[in-house]
């Protein structure tokens, strides 16, 4: 048990951290296999950033242990730093330098030979769509461009494990999609990505495994599919024009429940055509007019609310 299995990129055991009285991490355990994307999902203050700060050697833990690529964080921080790349929540670029100079600075700090460094920087500028802005100071960049430059700087050193702390927070939808594409490309090259996010969609899109963090503990862990299965949240939402139709429909569909304060009815359903047709034919038989119909399959939002809605939820194993 002295070392983590070699194919493990990150292993965390019983990690604890408090700031004064405030407990931020309360015995966190997780394992990330090499070459996969792990997403830590949680609301603000759940302990996501603290986890990244500890795993990237920026902060010390109060208890527990963690290894990154087999190197113990406490005893071999230098070896950890040599293996990782970090793109934090707050941009870590030099605003006074141009995008290209920022990247060249990284190349110099990684001791790339001059020519190799320049070639690599040119390639990253192309890949991150920053060629036109390369000679402009980073202070003139938009939020999305800064974030791309930030990640490009992280990649100059060819890290094997990449930490992305809320990589798309505050970005517009287009920039967010661009970021997702970049992360997917990264993973295809075999690196391990540890990503924190408060967007369920993001975890769903990118992660192989998702850990739901709540009050410093993992309350659930699994693939997006496994997590969705935990929550029977699928339903059909029917909206009616008047209270009479609503009451008629409620009588016709015995498993339904009202949406508080609206003229809408929630009917459990797996979202399949057969169950949908059954609902509609019952309403048809009684000539009840439906103004609007929508089908909702359970998403991670439901999982998240179901798991973190009640404080002190037990960890669900899948």
């Amino acid at each position: 048990m002295a070392t983590a299995p070699p194919e493990t990129a990150i292993s965390v055991t019983g990690l604890r951290k408090s700031f004064g009285e405030h407990v931020v991490l309360d015995g966190l355990d997780l394992t990330v296999p090499a070459g996969t994307v792990y997403s830590l999902l949680g609301a603000n203050g759940a302990g996501k950033s603290t986890t990244v700060r500890i795993l990237s050697t920026l902060a010390a833990s109060d208890g527990g242990s963690a290894r990154v690529r087999g190197h113990d964080l406490a005893s071999e921080p230098d070896a950890v730093r040599a293996a990782i790349g970090v793109t934090g929540q707050f941009s870590a670029v030099d605003s006074l330098l141009t995008g290209e100079e920022n990247l060249l600075l990284m190349a110099d700090l990684h001791h790339w030979p001059r020519r190799d460094g320049r070639r690599r920087v040119a390639e990253l500028l192309r890949r991150f769509d920053l060629v036109d802005a390369a000679r402009r100071p980073a202070s003139t960049y938009s939020g999305g461009m800064r974030r791309r430059l930030d990640l490009a700087m992280t990649l100059v050193g060819d890290p094997q494990v990449i930490f992305l702390d809320e990589p798309t927070t505050g970005l517009d939808p287009r920039s967010r999609r661009a970021m997702w594409r970049i992360v997917r490309e990264l993973v295809s090259t075999g690196v391990t990505v540890f990503l924190t996010t408060q967007y369920l969609e993001e975890a769903d899109e990118l992660a192989d495994r998702i850990g739901v963090l709540h009050h410093g503990r993992l309350v659930a862990e699994g693939t997006a599919e496994e997590l969705k299965r935990l929550v029977p949240g699928g339903h059909v939402l029917l909206r009616f024009a008047d209270p009479t139709s609503l009451e008629d429909a409620e009588r016709a569909l015995d498993t339904s429940s009202r949406e508080n304060g609206t003229l809408a009815l929630r009917v459990p359903s797996d979202g399949g055509l057969r169950s949908l047709r059954a609902v509609l034919s019952r309403l048809d038989d009684r000539s009840i007019e439906v103004e609007e119909l929508s089908v909702r399959t359970p998403d991670l939002d439901d999982v998240f609310l179901a798991l973190t809605g009640q404080p002190g939820a037990e960890k669900v194993s899948t």
Binding site: T57, L58, R81, V86, G88, A92, L109, G157
Partner: peptide, 13 residues
């Protein structure tokens, strides 16, 4: 305040 120092701190330099 810029956060670039945090980047340097996580690098092997």
């Amino acid at each position: 305040t810029e956060g670039i120092i945090d980047r340097f701190r996580t690098m092997h330099i």
